[in-house]
Structures are given as C-alpha cells and as structure tokens.
C-alpha cells in the first residue's frame, strides 16, 4: 500500500462515524439541553424531549450515510494506490471550535439588538460560564455548560492523521 496514513485516516473516520454516540453536550441553564454530533442530535427543553428533533435526526443520519459511502469509496481507492482525498472528517471536529465564536456574535449582537434585551453571553468553547439576561423587571441567570464527550476527542484522530498525510505529501514534492 502506497498511502498507509491516508488509509488509517479513512478506517478510523469510518469507525467514528458509525458509533451512534454524541460528540458534545451543551446546556443553557438546564432548561435547554442538547447532546449532539454532526450525525445525530437530541434536544431537551424544560425537561421534555423535543419531537421536532426527530426530523432533524433524519437529516443528520442521512448525512451520516453520505459520509459513510464516501469513506468506503475512499478506502477502495486507497487500497488501489489512488491518492483520493475526502477531507470532511478532517473539518468536522474543527467546526466545534469555530461554532461557539459564531454563536457568541449571533446571541450578543443579533439577538440582543433584535429583542432590545441586554444579553451578556460569554465566549465559551469548553467549560461553564454564567449568562445573565434582564427583561421586564426580571433577572435571569443561567449556567451555560459546554463539554465534549470522549468520542469528540477520538474524532480528532482523523484530523491529526489528515494533517500528517498532507505534510508528508508536501515534503515528497
């Protein structure tokens, strides 16, 4: 085999995609809770599981199927010594570091301005922070919890392998 690192990137990616467990836990004051990954989601609002989450789950599982087929295609081509690159599994974990920054700007600037409510939402990637909202004489303080699961750290292995593959290829040229 000509590209063992690319091959292991595909194999580990395939295992990660097929494990039906969430990557991340996110909670807004316990009132809104979600366990999610790019391929599945469970939404919980006021202690009730959101039914609309089922519809979202179908779309995410369809994405899982799409990625699985592409990874299998990648495995077939790599075993035939073809340097076929499918980088989705490299990008997915990285979005989890970019998303909180996007959410920060949406909540503070867009939502805050639209609802005329002063919201101080923290930039939080991993950990716990307090959010406080004042509206109509009421002050609401919520604990925001954002934590990766073990599977998220496992999903970083393909990312590392892909970077390794790219740097080795660059050195060859």
């Amino acid at each position: 085999m000509k590209y063992p690192i690319l091959f292991s990137y595909y194999i580990i990616s395939l295992i990660v995609v097929l494990i039906p467990l969430p990557w991340w836990y996110y909670s807004v004051g316990g009132i809104f809770q979600t366990y999610e990954s790019p391929f599945q989601i469970s939404l919980n609002f006021f202690g009730d599981s959101l039914i609309l989450g089922n519809i979202l789950n179908i779309l995410l599982n369809a994405f899982r199927i799409y990625v699985v087929v592409n990874l299998i295609y990648g495995i077939i081509l790599v075993t035939r010594n073809n340097k076929y690159r499918y980088s989705t599994m490299f990008w997915l974990p990285i979005f989890y570091f970019i998303d909180p920054i996007i959410i920060y700007f949406i909540i503070n600037y867009f939502l805050g301005l639209a609802l005329h409510i002063p919201i101080s939402y923290p930039i939080l990637i991993i950990g716990e922070e307090n959010l406080s909202v004042t509206s109509q004489g009421a002050n609401i303080r919520m604990l925001i919890i954002s934590e990766p699961t073990i599977l998220f750290w496992v999903s970083l292995i393909p990312t590392i392998l892909y970077v390794l593959f790219l740097t080795i290829e660059r050195k060859k040229n």
Binding site: N54, I55, I58, L59, N61, A62, F63, I65, Y66, V67, V68, V69, N70, I72, Y73, G74, Y86
Partner: peptide, 21 residues
C-alpha cells in the same frame, strides 16, 4: 462514484424515514 452513491443513499434514507414520522 462516492459522492453520487452517497447522495442517492442519503435521499433514499430521508424518503423512507419521512414516511414513518
């Protein structure tokens, strides 16, 4: 073929699942 079959299977899955929910 990876992308073509991927999209076909994904759409099939959506189509079948939406009937049930």
């Amino acid at each position: 073929w990876g992308k073509i079959f991927g999209i076909i299977f994904a759409i099939l899955f959506i189509f079948i699942s939406f009937q049930t929910i």
